[in-house]
Design a binder for these strands. Structure first.
Lengths: 206, 206
DNA sequence: TATCAACATGACACTTGATTCATGTATCAT
DNA sequence: ATGATACATGAATCAAGTGTCATGTTGATA
């Protein structure tokens, strides 16, 4: 447990054929682990699903944990790309917030397996899980600080805000993206955005 | 997996002695599962820790999942009691929100094992996990709706708000209550509360 | 103090699945 | 064609831990 190093050499495929096989295994593992959970997903089920022999698995991964680590990285890359695109043409930080939240919920719904894998990584290798969130938090924090600087948002503890917003998104992704897999997501994102942008407090401004 | 029925008869202790033993096992399981995780925590380690024989375990639980289910219920009861007390003398919904958040973070820090057990239950028996959150959400929702009614908070989607606030609390509990187990929690709770009460948006009222 | 239900024991039979390894096969450069 | 390297196979090994059960023990009750 808790060796979050990337698979060291000797395991990386050196040809195109090898890379393809590795991906087949990774894809199969995403489905198997995502659906059955880490404990239930056996290496034999994964290799069967990938249509390769059991031994082939160990050509590319040291063990089952290794695949999970790789899947967490995969999720990080894909989600980051997805969010970057979604936020690209937002005019302000708050607009980015709204668009990002919606994009996240959509991503969760589109990738329930990866989503679950990341959550479960917490119990298989806490260090990758933590790194995953730390990475997002770092970026999020910077974005908030710069928005503060430009006067777009009220000053405040950027770290706490970043983690709070991530937590909010994760839970809503779970509840509405995955559990309630058919409710429209836009109204959900809007309602949550309204709360974080304007706050709960009753006021009589304008 | 996914049988969230409470342990049926034949397993409930009928004497005081039995109840005591059951509790010893539950306490040991909380520590073992909380620290090692569900997969690593063996029944033999749990019974060793509880200082009872292996077979005794099966006098009170059908299997390892059963204990975990029971621990989730235990967490629910304790947390509910803790929050109720903490909120008791709050003058308004918003005050309750601030106090509740702080109390939650403190609870998480004081009970990291139970906290982890609940999170892991998601992968062992999704239905108890869901029930756990649904219960909290239901209450939360009612509180928000009644606060809306009395004009204490702005109208909005109470369901989304409840889940968003729970997610926010869960993540902050994890990050600051458990990972950063020595930072003062009051400032964290205040910073998060500020965001949800007043919002991020820059305004020029007063 | 005899009886009986409840509780407790711990050795072990049995299942399950991860990992290894001896043996092939594919592909490509020369 | 030949040799070398990478890739692929799957049966066999091996460890681990679950759940059972035949055999005690406790303590309340009459």
């Amino acid at each position: 447990m808790s060796n979050s190093d990337p698979s060291p050499p000797g395991l990386a495929p050196k040809t195109n054929r090898g890379e393809l096989t590795r991906q087949k295994i990774l894809d199969a593992a995403e489905r198997e682990i995502g659906q059955k959970g880490f404990a239930e997903a056996s290496v034999s089920a994964i290799t069967a699903e990938a249509a390769v022999a059991q031994g082939t698995f160990y050509l590319y991964f040291r063990n089952k944990e290794d695949v999970l680590r790789e899947l967490v990285l995969r999720m990080g890359r894909r989600l980051r790309r997805h969010l970057t695109l979604a936020i690209a043409d937002a005019g302000s930080r708050l607009e980015a917030e709204r668009a990002g939240l919606l994009a996240f919920l959509e991503f969760a719904r589109a990738n329930p397996n990866l989503y679950r894998v990341v959550e479960e990584s917490q119990f298989v290798d806490p260090s990758v899980y933590r790194r995953y969130y730390d990475d997002f938090a770092r970026n999020y924090r910077s974005a908030l600080i710069s928005a503060e600087g430009s006067g777009e948002i009220r000053p405040g503890n950027a770290d706490v805000r970043a983690w709070a917003l991530m937590g909010l998104a994760v839970m809503l992704g779970h509840r509405y993206g995955i559990w309630e897999s058919s409710v429209p997501l836009k109204p959900i994102a809007d309602a949550a955005f309204d709360m974080i942008a304007v706050g709960l407090e009753q006021r009589d401004d304008h």
